[in-house]
Design a protein around this nucleic acid. Sequence first.
DNA 1: ACCTGAACACCGTTCAAGT
DNA 2: ACCTGAACACCGTTCAAGT
Lengths: 240, 240
Amino acid sequence: MNIGTTFHLCQDAVMAPKKTSTPRREDSLTRDRIIEAAIELLDSTGEGGLTFRSLSERLATGPGALYWHVANKDDLVNAACDAIVARTLADGAGGATPGDSIRELALALFDAIDRHPWVGSALAAAHGQLPMVRILERIGRQVRALGVPEEAQWATVSVLLNYILGVGGQNAANGQFARTHGIDRDAFLAALSSRWLALDPEEFAFTRSFADRLPAHDDRADFLAGIDVILDGIASAHAR
Amino acid sequence: MNIGTTFHLCQDAVMAPKKTSTPRREDSLTRDRIIEAAIELLDSTGEGGLTFRSLSERLATGPGALYWHVANKDDLVNAACDAIVARTLADGAGGATPGDSIRELALALFDAIDRHPWVGSALAAAHGQLPMVRILERIGRQVRALGVPEEAQWATVSVLLNYILGVGGQNAANGQFARTHGIDRDAFLAALSSRWLALDPEEFAFTRSFADRLPAHDDRADFLAGIDVILDGIASAHAR
DNA sequence: ACCTGAACACCGTTCAAGT
DNA sequence: ACCTGAACACCGTTCAAGT
């Protein structure tokens, strides 16, 4: 899945081409080129913006041509997700301790999903697929390095992975909502806050008590705090 | 965004007559009736099986009629999800300790998503909506009861919630995959296991080492083990 | 007020026909 | 082998027209 091919998009070519000249591709279609274009489309137009028609238009071809290189839409989205995940994991230099490595890995994934919200949904949809296995493997190695006994390793990896996926899914939903409603993060949190304040004071006492702190809170810091809670739990369960 | 309307569920009150004056005919369309039919359709045919056409057919009406009671498909799915979540939370008797209550709550949600896999996806898609707020509130109260200091409560609730949502999302994906491919859980895990065994032995050493244990493992027990790890982490961070 | 059902603007996917 | 683009079988949603 090495995607180094460069290709340029002429979306700023305002002048409409002559009726006689159809936009021509410069080089042939490739699975990698298709995936790269899909990533750009997903990033710029959101989950709903990726369409075989819009994608084929961007690649100056017909919808049917894509099916020669890609099995179907699930395959396409999964491959796009895997490209992002593989790049994200490739960047990690590794921390001083296994715990640091896990923190670094988790933050890298958090940031990647923040930049590409659709990755959060794609990860949730594709259990056991390559992108998830990559993450599983990385976490597993660090959990082993942490000294967790063999029989508890799977459950331990599972907590970390599912927590990361859970946060990722929520971030994806936030990003998607903000996009389709044309508002930014601050406006989204402000709206959420006032919606929570409108809830029944008795039935939702806890939720309401946090409503006004919502707009100011730091997603990333909270996410990391969650990772630390889990790491603490692991340490206390397998203290040596 | 009008999902705050209170509606009561009479799932077991099969023969409760309406004492109040009911100008509507007995079989007239109702938001509740629509939501109930949507739940049945989602349960029996999966996420892709819910269609305004299939639903209207089941209710012996036209697709357009549904829009009088329901804003759009998101609204419909969210309301269906909320009905399941509300029922699930209503069953909880509460545990002996806050920790037990959290365990009980988490297991109840796990089982509900197991029975209705689409609820996992619906929860992931609707951040801050009523169904998620219900869960948030319940967890929040128990976290308070656990003695977690004020400033750490939000992050603590967040770990538990996101972990539950993460597992729920994965279970939803599993259920969806098994349904669309017409296989059961055992066949799914067996296929996953052999797929993992086909991975590169060096690059995926950890994953492969767990591939043969995959078919026999207990999702529910692993889920609960994860909850316990988080509860341990919370306890060790705020030891009194 | 509530319901009908045709119509609109899409979608993923297929496939005979081309090169 | 790879690509084309029309065609198929769907969607969610709207809306004039009915009761």
